[in-house]
Computed example of a mutant assay.
Amino acid sequence: MIRDYNQADIEEIVRLHTLEYKAMPAEIENLKSASKILVYEDRGIKGFIHLEMSGNHCYVEMGAATSELIIPDNWYLNASKEAIENNRKVSLEEKEYNYLFFKNNEILGASMVKNAEIELLFVNIKYQRKGYGKKILEYTINRGLEQSPTSVNLNALASNEKALKLYKDLGFKVVQAQDARRLNIGGD
């Protein structure tokens, strides 16, 4: 059953909201003071949605109770040959946004920045924790600033504390937080 929440539901809503990531205190307070939240109830609250409209902006928060283990989406493991080939063609068409980094003829890492949005940042596990991630990110930020001189954005998993620290150390700030944190360098 879907119904309006009542004040007695708030603690469970906050618990569901923070299952996947560490919410910022302001986010939790905003949720606690919300005027409209819908909950999905089936022998207890199983999920919620909070929709807030402000001017030209819409802000949505959701949470769900789940016992499923969240794993990376390695779509290509079950993809058809046609889907993989199509993905390869699209990647080649956008090759000017992709950057590969090598050391001793071995892939060190990769990045992609398109429309000043960092869509990919990867460091080979063999080279992690040696400063290469920072160098790749700095290079990628500079390519993004060539695309938009005022700001560069990226999304990061809120649970990836090491990555968040790196991004913040290089000047990014959290501008939106959900299951993934949206960060921005430059602009507002």
Rank of each mutant, 00 (worst) to 15 (best):
Y76V: 03
Q176I: 01
L137Y: 04
G55H: 06
A34M: 04
N153R: 13
F48G: 08
L51E: 08
Y127M: 12
Y127L: 11
N153T: 10
E94F: 05
A8R: 05
H50V: 00
N184M: 12
N104R: 14
M112C: 15
N104H: 14
E96H: 15
L100A: 09
N104Q: 15
N153P: 00
R181S: 10
L154Y: 02
L166P: 08
K168S: 05
E106D: 06
L108Q: 07
N6A: 05
R181H: 15
Y97Q: 06
E106L: 09
K134V: 02
L31K: 04
Q7G: 12
C58M: 15
G47F: 11
N98A: 12
N124M: 11
V39Y: 01
K36D: 12
N124G: 09
Q147P: 01
P72N: 03
L38K: 10
K114A: 03
L145V: 03
L121V: 15
I125V: 09
N105R: 14
E106Y: 05
L121C: 13
K162N: 13
P72R: 00
A116T: 03
M24R: 08
V14G: 04
D9R: 01
K135E: 07
V14L: 05
Y132W: 15
Y59C: 10
S111E: 04
D179K: 02
E52S: 09
G47P: 05
S54M: 10
N105F: 09
L183S: 04
A163Y: 01
K103V: 10
E146A: 06
A158Q: 07
N105H: 14
M53C: 10
E117V: 13
Y40P: 01
G44D: 04
V39H: 00
S54Q: 13
L38S: 13
G55F: 07
I37S: 09
Y40V: 14
K173F: 06
K36S: 13
D42R: 15
E93Y: 09
V39C: 02
N124T: 09
Y167E: 03
Y127Q: 14
A116L: 07
N124H: 09
L164C: 13
L19C: 03
E106R: 13
K135Q: 07
S33N: 12
V60W: 05
P72W: 04
V39P: 00
S33R: 02
L92F: 13
N78T: 15
L166F: 05
R43S: 08
S91Y: 05
I45R: 08
G133M: 04
C58P: 02
R3M: 11
E27R: 01
L157R: 03
A177E: 13
A177C: 13
N30E: 11
R143M: 02
K126H: 15
A116H: 07
K114R: 13
I107E: 08
Y59F: 13
L92D: 12
K32P: 03
A64L: 10
K114I: 07
V39W: 01
A156Q: 06
S151K: 12
G187R: 07
I107K: 12
N56H: 14
N160F: 03
G186M: 02
